[in-house]
Amino acid sequence: MFRLLRSHCQSILANQPINRLLALDVFRGITITAMILVNNPGSWQYIYAPMKHADWHGWTLTDLIFPFFIFIVGIAITLSGTKQLEQGKSRGSILKHAALRMVKLILLGWFLALFYYNFTADSYNWIEQRLLTMRFMGVLQRLALVYFACVLLWLYLSNRLLQMSFVVLLVGYWMTLWFIPYHDVLGKPYLGLMEFGNNLSAWLDSQLFNPQHLYYKTAQPFAFDPEGVLSTLPAIATGLSGIFVGQWLSKPNFNNLAKAKWLLLVGIIAVGLGELWGLYFPINKALWTSSYVLLSSGYACVMLAALIYLLDCKNIKNWSAPFVVFGANSIAFFMFAGVVARLLIMIPVADSSLKGWLYTQVFQPAFGEFNGSLAFAIGFLIMSYGVMYVMYRRGLFWKV
């Protein structure tokens, strides 16, 4: 069995192009795998603490997943964009492609928001209860907006202006939340609050969208979305942090060990600055605070440094093969997992759904409540790997 697994992993890694940064591909795969893992427990009632988001201020390991993905997108923008420019593509054509990709990602996000039907309720009305209450913002929607903004800034700003933009986004967002007043429907004024449902970002979401289109529909005094409009601005800074790292990794005069050491140092400094800033501007994923940007980008640098050291310096690679498969089709994996997860909820079995039946009749009796919930998520990953591996072997890579 061990020999089969090793042979399987070696065959995957043998197909990797020599000039590709394996650590980045594996980092992408680990990130999307973690995202699917935490999104698909057997029961939302039984989740281990590291696999939950922080209730409000603070952070958990799960809170690092989304910014890691945006960080990786920033690196890819630099590496891919530089290659396209060297091949003679114009800035305009690259931007046009980025705009088209943004639209596709938004449409995919809306598709997932609409892909649901309650077959057990005779009175269920999909148009009224799904289409007319569709959540406009979301993970793919934020990714789309951040991606396009980062491509635009990278194409037309110098490195110095990019660095200035990073600082302006972080400091400007901080000042905006602290010093711009707002008020509720009764005219009661507020200033500088960062409470759940009571902050400038939540206020703006409530002004732009009907509460039924927001994730936290019943938040008071303002319904809001954790992927809201205003908090997308500091998320762009997360993408810029990836661009900076991508620019540095592209330099030919540094070996992998030097790159790993540099990333580790920068990461530790960024984490420290994020924690320090968090004393005054709390680390908060839903608000995507500036301290959260520094902290998550810092940990992303540390993670990438560790992967470069293990994979490219020490040549310890076999373990990484499944993540190469997942990372090679990250958007396809995300969409596949989203569709299957919804189907498991939609398909009725006995007095429950197929997912509920599998958890209560198979996983919970075998492993217990918390371990059963985790085992379900791991089983979901194993099933997904089979599909993603077939796509990988057949060269089917879904480029949005």
Rank of each mutant, 00 (worst) to 15 (best):
I236C: 13
G239R: 08
V168D: 02
N255F: 10
V293D: 01
G192P: 08
I269W: 13
F148T: 02
N125W: 06
T78M: 10
V325G: 05
V245W: 00
I347M: 07
L140G: 05
Q129C: 03
S11T: 07
L24Q: 04
G327I: 04
L240Q: 05
G278Q: 01
N318A: 14
S93Q: 12
G29K: 10
R394W: 12
T33Y: 11
L161K: 15
G327M: 05
L143I: 11
Y182C: 05
L157N: 14
M335S: 00
S90G: 09
L310F: 08
N40A: 09
F244W: 06
K355M: 09
L396W: 15
L177K: 10
I180P: 01
A149H: 10
F115L: 07
V324Q: 09
L161A: 15
A202S: 10
L208H: 07
R342G: 07
N15P: 00
A113D: 00
Y116K: 15
P348N: 08
I36A: 08
L311M: 02
N198K: 12
M194C: 05
F148C: 06
L145E: 06
M383V: 15
C301M: 13
G298K: 10
K83Q: 13
A149W: 12
I47D: 03
N284L: 04
V139H: 11
K96H: 06
L132E: 01
F2S: 09
L310C: 06
E275R: 12
M388Q: 15
L112H: 03
F2Y: 12
A305M: 01
F244D: 03
Q207A: 07
K52P: 07
F281H: 15
W277R: 04
G395L: 00
G29M: 02
P322Q: 08
R101W: 05
F244N: 03
Y215K: 15
T238Q: 13
Q220K: 09
G278P: 10
A260V: 02
Y299A: 03
L85V: 04
L304R: 00
N159R: 14
L61P: 08
M175R: 11
I72Q: 07
F244P: 02
S93G: 02
Q87T: 09
M164C: 12
D351L: 04
F222M: 03
S241L: 15
K259V: 00
H53A: 04
A98L: 04
V339A: 00
H213S: 05
P189S: 15
Y46A: 08
K261N: 13
E227A: 01
M383A: 15
W277P: 04
V293A: 14
L22I: 08
P50D: 01
L161Q: 14
G272Y: 11
M137H: 06
P41N: 03
L279W: 11
Y359V: 07
I316R: 11
L153I: 15
L214G: 04
K399Q: 15
K314H: 12
L112Y: 12
L131V: 15
V26S: 01
W178P: 00
P189C: 08
S7V: 08
I18W: 11
L396G: 00
L230C: 06
S250Q: 14
L24H: 03
K317F: 04
N284Q: 11
A328N: 07
L193M: 11
N255E: 02
V324L: 09
L157D: 07
H53I: 01
A223S: 14
L230R: 10
A14V: 04
L263F: 13
E227H: 04
T62C: 06
